[in-house]
Amino acid sequence: MRSYLFVPGDRPERFGKALAAGADVVILDLEDAVAAPNKAQARDNVRRAVDDGAQVMLRINGAGSQDFIDDLALLHGLPLRGVMLPKAESVGPLGELAEVTDAPVIPLIESALGLWEVMTVARGPGVERLAFGSIDFQVDLGCDGSDEALLHARSRIVLASRVAGLQAPVDGVSVALDDEAVIAAESRRSRALGFAGKLCIHPRQVAVVNAAFSPTREELEWAARVVAACERSAGAAVSVDGAMVDLPVLLRAQNLLAMAG
């Protein structure tokens, strides 16, 4: 799963466009994108869309609010691709989610406390992978959104995901809507750090994100050469393109080919 596209839960006229945008996952949003007076209507919109067959993820409201309680009621028996939990900072809300749904959960790490407790959150019930709420995180810390300022947080989320045995995490949104070069550069940086996907806030971002998190033709050609050389060598030492191939290199090549389907 490379691209996760948000669409406001109170804008049902946008659901169809989002589902047709080519994103790997569409997230109907009940949290930040929906004003307080529209929360109840947004829940009704979500239920109708899912009842009509929409395959979506749902971002619910943060724990400790009445909206979180109302969202838990909505989740009973609702078939979803997953649930995104904002402001994840402890295991408690994950336990509450586990009582009402068996959908996989993606906690959003978007505060100092969330990053401090990231390993506890990563090992919580139902957690499939983590996501980085980079915008909220920089507001909470009072830092800028530069690569340097957020490098520690990103690296720690990737590390915690690996140690906890989760799927590779999802990086935060890009605020660039029309600058494909910026979106591509941010996505490549995320992939280089160990992220496997990125949150999107506009359909125009999806294709760029998908391309950045997919193996390139050159990578696939290299991977095919590595696998073929190892098969021919029958376990003997082998080199490809002037470089020695050991087990980690072979595994990387096999993973690239698996990513390509």
Rank of each mutant, 00 (worst) to 15 (best):
A73I: 08
G53K: 05
A131T: 14
A164I: 00
C230T: 13
A212I: 03
Q66W: 00
G197H: 06
F68A: 02
I27D: 02
G62P: 10
D24G: 06
A49P: 09
L94I: 10
A20K: 10
I157S: 02
L72T: 09
G62H: 12
A223V: 03
L58Q: 13
G64T: 12
G165D: 04
S214F: 02
R188S: 05
P79I: 11
K198N: 00
G92N: 04
D24E: 15
S111P: 11
R225N: 08
A184D: 09
L80K: 09
A149G: 04
F137T: 02
Q167K: 06
S134Q: 06
V245F: 11
G16E: 14
P37S: 12
A88K: 03
W222N: 05
A229I: 11
L74S: 14
R59Y: 12
V209H: 02
S111F: 08
A211P: 01
S161V: 02
L75H: 13
S214K: 02
V50G: 12
A253C: 11
D67V: 11
D51Q: 15
S187A: 15
P8K: 04
I106D: 01
G126L: 08
A160I: 05
L30E: 03
P37V: 12
Q167L: 06
D140C: 03
L19T: 04
Q138R: 15
A223D: 01
K198H: 01
L58Y: 14
C230R: 13
G22H: 02
S239G: 13
A243D: 14
K87R: 12
A184Y: 04
C200R: 07
R43K: 09
A42G: 13
